[in-house]
Write a protein that binds this DNA or RNA. Structure first.
Length: 280
DNA sequence: GGGCGCCTATAAAAGGG
DNA sequence: CCCTTTTATAGGCGCCC
């Protein structure tokens, strides 16, 4: 079944089942029975409030769960997890974003092991960078300044440049996947596919072409995910597949006007390009 | 650090099925 | 309700002081 936070959990034991959901579409329906391992480190549940009924799980059980899942003792990870939970809540982020950030945090710590021991790069700065990356991979990037403020509100000395520095460092070491235009398009395509809108590889390629054809400076500053979405919309429309702005926006949890604005912009730019080509 | 203008994303509303 | 389009507003970012 699906927890109120949109988390697939086992109906009988409450363990998180199935891959975490990071896209914007609605979670899958139906029961998931039994225990499923998620990449090796998820050994328990961190469902702090039971998905069924209103009774709270005991504090002791919650602590036990966290210890089992994230390692015993007073590890830095536990502290980070707690802070991430509070900060994500303050930022109004759903639990899966927090979870994802924590997964990335652990990866970053592993990649930057030698640096994190130092004074300049603290665990919390890494956690802040992880939050930036998780929100980015999810298609809803949170500006480093906003993250830094949220961390500072909790007393952590985190600046936007700290976040950017750590991301840069980890990227140079190959610890951070690069999100290309194609990745973003695939992400959008996967969301559409769940709604029965067929998006094959050729469509993705065409959309990629559209985005590459557009001069950078015309679209700088715009949300790349919205642009990717708009490109997909255009390509689909060109192929006679009709989706409304309304539906597209609802699926992706965006505003219809933003989707439309980006589509119109791309249309305009493509038209300008055609004219330029015709004149040359 | 503000104050200011520019720009984007979004919510809300308007208006037509 | 489903959809498109317009309008108003919030919030970011750079720039200037």
């Amino acid at each position: 079944m699906v927890s109120p936070e949109g988390f697939p959990v086992c109906s009988s034991c409450g363990l998180v089942a199935q891959e975490l959901i990071f896209d914007w579409s609605t979670p899958p329906d139906g029961d998931v029975k039994g225990r499923i391992y998620l990449g090796g480190w998820e050994e328990g549940s961190i469902i702090t409030n039971p998905p069924l009924g209103g009774s709270r799980v005991s504090e002791r059980l919650v602590k036990l769960n966290i210890r089992v899942k994230y390692g015993g003792g007073r590890s830095a990870d536990r502290e980070v997890f707690r802070e991430l939970t509070v900060i994500c809540k303050a930022l109004g982020l759903p639990r899966e974003v927090c979870e994802h950030a924590f997964i990335i945090y652990r990866k970053l710590v592993r990649v930057l092991r030698d640096v994190v021991a130092g004074r300049r790069v603290t665990h919390f700065k890494v956690a802040a960078a992880a939050l930036a990356l998780s929100s980015r991979s999810e298609g809803r990037p949170i500006p480093p300044l906003k993250i830094a403020k949220a961390f500072r509100a909790r007393g952590h000395l985190v600046s936007p440049s700290d976040i950017m520095e750590i991301v840069h460092l980890a990227r140079r070491r190959g610890g951070v996947p690069r999100y290309t235009t194609r990745d973003m398009l695939r992400l959008c395509a996967a969301v559409l596919a769940k709604l029965g809108v067929k998006v094959d590889e050729a469509v993705v390629r065409d959309a990629e072409e559209v985005l590459h054809a557009v001069p950078r400076h015309y679209v700088s500053g715009r949300d790349p995910h919205l642009l990717a979405l708009a490109a997909l919309y255009l390509v689909l429309k060109r192929r006679g597949v009709s989706i409304s702005y309304y539906r597209l926006a609802r699926i992706t949890r965006r505003a219809t006007s933003s989707v439309r604005a980006n589509v119109k912009l791309l249309e305009k730019l493509l038209h300008m390009r055609e004219v330029a080509v015709a004149l040359s």
